[in-house]
Nucleic acid binder design. Structure first.
Length: 559
RNA sequence: UGGGGCGUAGCCAAGUGGUAAGGCAUCGGGUUUUGAUCCCGUGUACCGCAGGUUCGAAUCCUGCCGCCCCAGCCA
């Protein structure tokens, strides 16, 4: 089966549930906590949850899991909504919050207490930890575990009423302190937090814990398949315990899949935050960040991200996906959608000694070699041109078919030129090339069908537009930066290079967010934050595949 | 030394007892005024290891090994 036809194990389950009539319609949810920005790992979950319902005519909720007011903020709520929408998904009227259900959740807690399945504990956090035991030793019961239902009901009501300070009491499920599954050792259900909540304000001073709130929210929304990552597999017995105890009419099934890890990147919210706080990157939307906001600003198309997670697949196996897979998805998408332009990143002046000084010719350039319907544009060609420094070598290795002393090369859409002289500065650096052009070789004229091996790009000096171009590279030097003792030690010092580039004049009118291919260099997009008409700022999204660079690298490695 | 999960080519991943799909990468070759794109070709994967069942096992059984997760009043 090809990647588009394959049915992963979750889609298989869903397919079976539909076919057997267990469910008529699939309902899922994407439940982020609004305590940070979404990253590439979330893209996977978003595409899965919204994808399976889009494919089967189901519904998906965007639900904010906002049960911890100390860490959450409306700025994240807004950013998350923007990111999900940008990725191409629509929750229609199904935008909810776990906090929308606080009253109902509280009633469930009261029920649990009433049936003797939960109790108010007055041990301190430290004591609770001690009583919990360890991975190999069972825990022991809290002395408060045997409180009467009446006392528990009274205490819980007073917790809600605000009679106690933070940490004084906690509501716990009464399950099994000796369970080998730590999640079942009387997990906390509610804690006291005298804090203003980003969505419910000061309505509450007790807040439900994740397991309790999440399970019941799923049930209340009639979620059929609650899809989450592998680390929650141990929580499933607790998830089911809540459902058993409270016997909801709608019983969601939790299914776990493995996270998507990207090589050379980090997806820990804490570490991502550190990168921002320490000024290592410029913000959550720094184009080097693996956040959705960062990738969007970098110029990665949403469709490429969706394609990427499809390629990665849905399984339970730990995966570390190569950066190249993501980059290829981006190239594939941009390759067909982006118009071609010319720009020189590291300019080297070329003077065509036999070209008239006062003439400017207009040459015609295709906007896309495979899509003639995208038309052409006219480029000014004159006596002095910028070419890429890399496109000239004084002492080239074999198979270098760009410019070299005495050698010929074609200027894209222009003429064939020959390098006659190399001008250097006092330091011995090449600062200018004196070349001659062959007037019979103008592109498209057909007056000469001479062939030369190389074609290079160029920009007319008199017409070029100055721009700041930002060249990005991976943020880390190792494939698994998350396993480093200190991620600072594996930061890539060269993750950002800024160059002063020369652009063909047509680029001057581009608007923020627009994407083009600079021929022979890569895909670039106009920065959405810092670009201005008078000062173009451009991001390199990804380079073109470069088999010459690969050869050079191999040659280097072989000495 | 407790519990839960996972182990198919460099990276992903199909496969659910009948003799190993596909994608990406790699390496060849062709086309090409982007060393891009496109096109063609290219991999002996001892299916983690060792036993066993079977005419036949990646698929079933047993034992072992390796990796990941769990001891928040975080999610």
């Amino acid at each position: 089966m090809s990647e588009t036809e394959s049915r992963d194990f979750i889609r298989q389950i869903i397919h079976d549930d539909l076919e057997s009539g267990k469910h008529e319609q699939i309902v899922t949810r994407f439940p982020p906590e609004p305590n940070g920005y979404l990253h590439i790992g979330h893209v996977m979950s978003i595409c899965l949850n919204f994808g399976v319902t889009a494919e089967t005519g189901g519904r998906t909720y965007l639900r904010f899991d906002d049960t911890n007011p100390g860490k959450e903020s409306p700025v994240y709520v807004e950013a998350i909504e923007h990111d999900v929408r940008w990725l191409g998904f629509d929750w229609e009227d199904r935008l909810t919050h776990a906090s929308d259900y606080f009253e109902s959740l509280y009633e469930s807690a009261v029920s649990l207490v009433a049936m003797g399945s939960a109790y108010v504990d007055s041990l301190s956090a430290d004591e609770i930890r001690e009583y919990r035991g360890t991975l190999t030793e069972p825990g022991k019961n809290s002395p408060h575990r045997s409180r009467s239902v009446e006392e528990n009901l009274d205490l819980l009501a007073r917790m809600r009423a605000g009679e106690f300070a933070d940490g004084e009491h906690v509501l716990r499920a009464k399950i099994d302190m000796s369970s080998p599954n730590m999640n079942l050792r009387d997990p906390a259900l509610y804690r006291i937090r005298h804090l203003t909540h980003q969505h419910t304000g000061d309505d509450w001073c007790i807040y439900p814990m994740y397991d309790f709130a999440h399970t019941l929210s799923d049930a209340l929304e009639h979620i059929t398949h609650s899809l989450c990552t592998l680390e929650f597999e141990d929580h499933r017995p607790l998830y089911n315990w809540f459902l058993d105890q409270l016997k909801p009419e709608h019983r969601p099934r939790q299914i776990e899949f493995s996270r998507l890890n990207l090589a050379y990147a980090i997806t820990s919210k804490r570490k991502l935050n550190a990168l921002v706080e320490e000024g290592i990157v410029e913000g959550w939307n720094d184009p080097r960040m693996p956040t959705i906001a960062g990738m969007r600003r970098r110029g990665y198309p949403a469709a490429a991200l969706r394609h990427f997670v499809t390629r990665a697949g849905v399984t339970k196996k730990d995966k570390l996906i190569e950066m190249g897979v993501l980059e290829n998805c981006v190239r594939e998408n941009l390759g067909v959608t982006s118009q071609r332009r010319m720009a020189v990143l590291r300019p080297l002046r070329v003077v065509l000694t036999n070209y008239p000084e006062d003439i400017v010719e207009m040459v015609t350039a295709m906007n896309h070699p495979a899509r003639p319907e995208l038309g052409t544009r006219e480029l000014p060609f004159s006596r002095e041109l910028w070419i890429e420094q890399d496109d000239f070598m004084e002492e080239p290795p074999r198979k270098f078919f760009r410019l070299k002393p005495g050698g010929e090369v074609r200027l894209r859409f222009g003429y064939i030129i020959r390098c006659d002289d190399v001008i250097k500065n006092e330091a011995g650096e090449v600062i200018e090339l004196r070349c001659s052009y062959d007037a019979d070789t103008r592109s498209g004229t057909g007056s000469s069908d001479r062939k030369v091996k190389g074609t290079i790009h160029w920009v007319s000096c008199a017409h070029g537009v100055d721009a700041e171009v930002r060249l990005y590279d991976r943020l880390f030097t190792v494939a698994k930066p998350n396993t480093a003792d200190d991620f600072h030690a594996v930061l890539n010092a060269d993750s950002l290079q800024v160059v002063e580039a020369k652009l063909e004049p047509s680029l001057a009118s581009m608007k923020a967010g627009e994407t083009v291919q600079f021929e022979r260099l890569g895909y670039f997009c106009i920065d959405s934050e810092e670009h201005s008409g008078s000062r173009p700022v451009i991001n390199r999204i990804v380079t073109l595949r470069d088999s010459w660079a690969r050869l050079e690298q191999q040659a280097m490695q072989q000495g």
